[in-house]
Design a protein around this nucleic acid. Structure first.
Lengths: 236, 236
DNA sequence: GCCGGTCATTGATCGAGGTCAACGCCGCCT
DNA sequence: AGGCGGCGTTGACCTCGATCAATGACCGGC
């Protein structure tokens, strides 16, 4: 478990963001628009654990992961973020997590003082944070009480668009299939689920053998029976 | 792991709260004071998982735990709350967690619409939620990557007042002692740390044998060497 | 005092998942 | 083409924590 993954230091974004007035029609625009608009590629780090941060980030598009390291190298990916999610908070002036894009992303960076001054912004952020709080509660359940296969099944269900881990069409319903993109390596999935990459691999293989999953490429999995997979998450 | 604790259905609070204007000088009073003020005893449940909730709660004094159940009875305590913390959010109209007092508590219950209408209140809540978010990130690290003894040590450090799990006075410093109250049973500690009660008990015994802990009563533990305990949390 | 219930401790054994290691696949570079 | 490095899979083995079970400590009621 020591050094679950050495030398993972992707290049930090430098200046491919544009300073200025953000205007985004795809997302409910807050009244305050004094935000930096960042456009990042895949696998770029936004902040490192311990960095001084003065910004709060709002993810418009793409995916971001938040992770933490223990001094001996053990890593935990504490949150996976999608469009609408926010991050960059901390009790102190330094970030408690690292943030890295999992795929090309667009985001808004608000100065903390800007946020403190704007009620609209705070309402938006509070709304979102409460959703993320619930997500973290769910994840604590997963990490504390679920088996390896249940964790992987839950993870895959979370990847299903518009279903967010919530339920299948109903038991007995005609088995439906979904193709999901998995923008994480096995090691990353392991670090997210509190497992090792071997255990994750074995769980994938098991689900494949059982016919719940079909895949060739590792980053594109066909869930052959959403309903049945959903029932192996332990939550139903 | 099935039914980690059957028949735990403490009495629900009924009517020992006073409706009306809350005025509390011990806590930074929000401008909006349209809150129900609840005064509860120990071991009373505030909401059950699945209950319809229209309120957001602000804990003024005491301690509350939030827990979730899996259909087969596995339980996870997802958060331990102290004065200042907030809860009662949910993506849906139903609570995603149960809330129960761990000791006598005073709290404020705000109607959701009241919150939505008050910028002051939202600012207060957002501030607190971001702290709780960080706490949950930390806890995910614990659940996903720490060993049993590290978890128990981390838990005990979190119980140290005014130190919140953060650091010892410094290595080499004269060993300092603290007496901490532990208002949880071993089973509850286990459900919080993602372990079984036996494993928790063994970890306590081990730490005691190593001289890091001294105790007779189970709910009052003397940390004999905060610094050394802190070093067995895995975080330093 | 005795008794029953709850909670904690301790021991013995088991098993899920971690660890270590070999190998396969695939894309990329020269 | 050949070689190489990153990622994933699979197998063999081991360990930490779960499980099962017995016992002990404490507390309240009669």
């Amino acid at each position: 478990m020591l050094d679950s993954n050495l030398d993972r230091t992707p290049p930090k974004h430098d200046a491919n963001w544009t300073l200025g007035i953000a205007s985004d029609d795809a997302f409910p625009a807050p009244a305050e628009r004094a935000a930096r608009h960042l456009a990042l590629g895949s696998r770029e780090t936004i902040v490192d654990e311990g960095d001084e941060t003065r910004s709060v980030y709002l993810l418009l598009e793409g995916a971001v992961m938040l992770s933490k390291l223990l001094p001996d190298g053990r890593r935990q990916i504490v949150e996976l973020l999608g469009p609408g999610d926010v991050f960059g908070f901390s009790t102190t002036a330094r970030s408690d997590v690292s943030a890295e894009t999992l795929r090309p992303a667009r985001l808004l960076a608000y100065d903390r003082r800007t946020v403190a001054a704007s009620a609209t912004l705070q309402a938006l952020i509070a709304e979102r944070m409460s959703a993320q709080l619930c997500g973290l509660h769910d994840h604590a359940m997963l990490l504390g009480r679920k088996s390896a296969v249940e964790r992987v099944a839950t993870f895959l269900m979370r990847m299903v668009p518009r279903r967010g881990g919530m339920g299948c069409a109903g038991p007995g319903t005609t088995a439906d299939k979904v193709l999901v993109k998995v923008p994480l390596t096995r090691q990353e999935i392991a670090d997210y689920l509190g497992l090792t990459l071997e255990t994750v691999s074995r769980a994938f293989s098991l689900l494949k053998r059982q016919g719940l999953l079909v895949y060739g490429r590792h980053d594109e999995v066909m869930i052959a029976d959403v309903c049945r997979l959903c029932c192996t998450t332990g939550s139903h």
